[in-house]
């Protein structure tokens, strides 16, 4: 290998240039920013007031006045999507945060310690996995009362074993590498090695899993809202809108189309963003960028 590439020292300028020349990062960031901006704007302003029901305007197809049409109560779909984004994103993000925040350390611990710690943690994981996630979430919210907070906790708990498994599998493939042996010969303990060597090397795995879990989180919130255990009306969420729309699918397809597109675009944007981030932070990919 004669790969002695010309080297530029790493600086913030170079970092930003590299980030901006990465196509999936830029597109992903753009889409994500639009969604976030939408959620922020909805705090102050929406095209229509969604608490007012204008029955005369019900089930209007998209027009210059109602860009995305209106629903069966005559509420503006665009306004509902804007407000709904707050709930959907918040629930999914926090749920992923809970899953990562607890699952990743558990998985790394299991991989680092091995033996009975690994066995106990992973079998416990299997137990949590064995429960049908959505049904258990229904149970939790039914016991503790419906609402966005309980939905978040319920979805978050079922994200933990997912991240624990991914982190453990990733970490197990890194542990036998020689550079870990070298770090151990340098007297570093398991915790330090995990932070310095394992986590950066499994970060892209976790990011990809994170975007997948985010998408599932939005869907789970939608499911909970559908049975009345998630976001409470009159606050809309994307999931609620989708499920409300399905009865009138044939008459007013736009009611399902637009919230569906919103979910799709958000997930796609986050996926691209995750891909881009992992590329930017991989020094081996830098020459390509």
């Amino acid at each position: 290998m004669t790969d002695v590439a010309t080297h530029q020292p790493d600086s913030w300028g170079g970092f930003i240039r590299r980030a901006l020349s990465n196509r999936s990062f830029v597109i992903g960031l753009f889409v994500t920013l639009i969604v976030v901006a939408m959620a922020v704007v909805s705090l102050f302003w929406t095209p229509f007031d969604i608490t007012k029901l204008v029955v005369a305007d019900r089930m209007q197809p998209p027009s210059s006045e109602h860009w995305f049409g209106t629903d069966h109560f005559g509420r503006d779909v665009l306004s509902m999507i804007m407000i709904g984004s707050r709930n959907s994103i918040a629930v999914a993000l926090v749920a992923v945060g809970i899953g990562m925040g607890i699952g990743v350390p558990l998985g790394c611990w299991a991989a680092a310690r091995g033996g009975w710690v690994d066995e106990v943690l992973m079998r416990f994981n299997d137990v949590v996995f064995a429960f049908p996630a959505l049904l258990s979430a229904v149970m939790i919210t039914a016991v503790f009362g419906p609402g966005a907070i309980n939905a978040i906790i319920a979805i978050g708990i079922f994200n933990i074993p997912v991240f624990a498994r991914v982190a453990r599998a990733g970490a197990l493939s890194i542990w036998p590498r020689e550079y870990i042996l070298a770090a151990r010969a340098a007297g570093k303990g398991p915790a330090r090695i995990t932070v310095e060597h394992i986590l950066p090397n499994i970060a892209n795995l976790l990011l990809v899993q994170g975007t997948i879990q985010f998408a599932l989180g939005i869907l789970a919130e939608a499911g909970l809202s559908y049975v009345g255990l998630g976001t409470q009306p009159p606050l809309p969420s994307w999931g609620r809108m989708l499920f409300d729309a399905q009865t009138v699918m044939m008459v007013a397809p736009w009611l399902a189309l637009f919230p569906g597109c919103a979910i799709l675009l958000t997930v796609l944007g986050l996926n691209l963003l995750g891909d881009g981030i992992s590329d930017i932070f991989d020094p081996r990919a830098r020459r390509r960028a």
Partner: peptide, 9 residues
């Protein structure tokens, strides 16, 4: 090739 963490300087 294997004895260095690819992500460190």
């Amino acid at each position: 090739y294997g004895s260095f963490d690819p992500r460190h300087t």
